[in-house]
């Protein structure tokens, strides 16, 4: 006899599916251009930062799996995404010890406490960032200038701050395009914003590369295009309306779209497969709520940037959206 076992299973007899690890690996590929741009724009500090958050997230995942006597889930690449995303939302000169702590918090509080991959209520990277924002509000709003001439030979003094010590402030505070608009009403030109020739978080500056990464994932059918589309459309429409009412007070919709972490948030954060709604209509609603929140927080809130809180709040209500918008089960009649 041939040494072959016959597989008996019920339908559907799918030959080969796309595994979680496949999708996650592709998300990492899609993130890399924007991350590399961050390193190119901000130099060594940004490189160290991204490596630290990624290593921290992966190590935490591995350690926690071992601790709870489970098989290590590092190989599904999801921890790499969390770490990379976290690093991309932090300022390039963020002290490494804080970044490491952020990675640990992301995985433990954002993911593992709920039961690991597939059970997280919130986007883990944003949980980590929210913790860092609450714990170290000064360090996380200290920005670093982009395209310094010696950025590949020197790094920010703050980067290698000793653990638990206060970083030296060598950056400048509150001078991102959003902050400049909020506090001194200076708008930055759109091409500069789109190409990322500005200061900001490590991976959020170059909107064009983020969009390209998103398009790659959409083309491979690995991302729900409705969510970013809905967020960006809502922001554009809402901000456009405000701008029509009073163009002095409110920024132009294009400025709103390309500044801050909106692109990164809409394309890579809000689309977290687990923490977003299931149905297509639910996705549109979810995106619209996040878009509205982003504009509301940015314009009327105390902080210049609101994408993080908007996405976290969106995550929180996404199960309720699913509950309210249930597709009709085939054959059960019309309500």
């Amino acid at each position: 006899m041939l040494n072959k076992t016959l597989n008996i299973s019920t339908s559907p007899h799918a030959v080969q599916g796309v595994s979680t690890a496949d999708i996650m690996r592709n998300v990492v590929w899609a993130l890399l251009p924007a991350a590399f741009f961050g390193v190119y724009a901000f130099g060594l500090s940004a490189l160290f930062l991204l490596i630290t958050t990624t290593v921290s997230a992966v190590l935490t995942e591995h350690f926690l799996c071992r601790f709870s006597n489970k098989e290590s889930t590092v190989s599904d690449w999801s921890a790499v995404i969390t770490g990379l995303l976290l690093g991309m939302t932090l300022p390039p000169n963020f002290p490494l010890w804080m970044a490491f702590l952020g990675g640990v918090i992301s995985i433990t509080l954002g993911k593992f406490i709920f039961g690991g991959l597939g059970c997280n209520v919130f986007n883990p990277a944003l949980v980590g960032r929210a913790f860092l924002q609450a714990a170290f509000p000064v360090a996380i709003t200290t920005w670093y200038p982009a395209f310094l001439p010696d950025r590949f030979s020197t790094y920010s003094v703050a980067t290698f701050t000793l653990p638990f010590m206060e970083p030296a402030l060598d950056g400048f505070t509150g001078a991102t395009p959003l902050a400049a608009f909020k506090f001194s009403h200076q708008a930055t030109a759109i091409p500069e914003l789109a190409l990322g020739l500005i200061s900001g978080s490590t991976g959020e500056t170059c909107a064009v590369l983020i969009i390209l990464g998103g398009l790659y994932l959409i083309a491979r059918n690995m991302m729900n295009w409705r969510i970013p589309a809905s967020i960006l459309l809502t922001v554009f429409a809402f901000c456009g309306l405000l701008n029509l009412i009073n163009s002095e007070l409110y920024p132009t919709p294009l400025f709103m779209l390309f500044s801050g972490g909106l692109m990164l948030g809409a394309v890579f954060m809000a689309t977290d497969l687990v923490a977003s709604p299931v149905t297509p209509l639910g996705n549109w609603v979810y995106g619209a709520i996040i878009g509205l929140l982003v504009v509301v927080i940015r314009i009327w809130g105390g902080l210049p940037e609101g994408v993080m809180y908007a996405v976290l709040l969106g995550n929180a209500i996404s199960p309720h959206i699913d509950n309210l918008i249930k597709p009709r089960v085939y054959g059960t009649g019309k309500r």
């Binding site: 002290p95 804080m98 913790f131 609450a134 714990a135 170290f136 509000p137 360090a139 701050t161 638990f164 010590m165 206060e166 970083p167």
Partner: peptide
């Protein structure tokens, strides 16, 4: 801790 200790503001909240 020494004076340069970084406070975790969140812990007081």
């Amino acid at each position: 801790f020494p004076a340069s200790f970084q406070e975790w503001v969140v812990m007081m909240l």
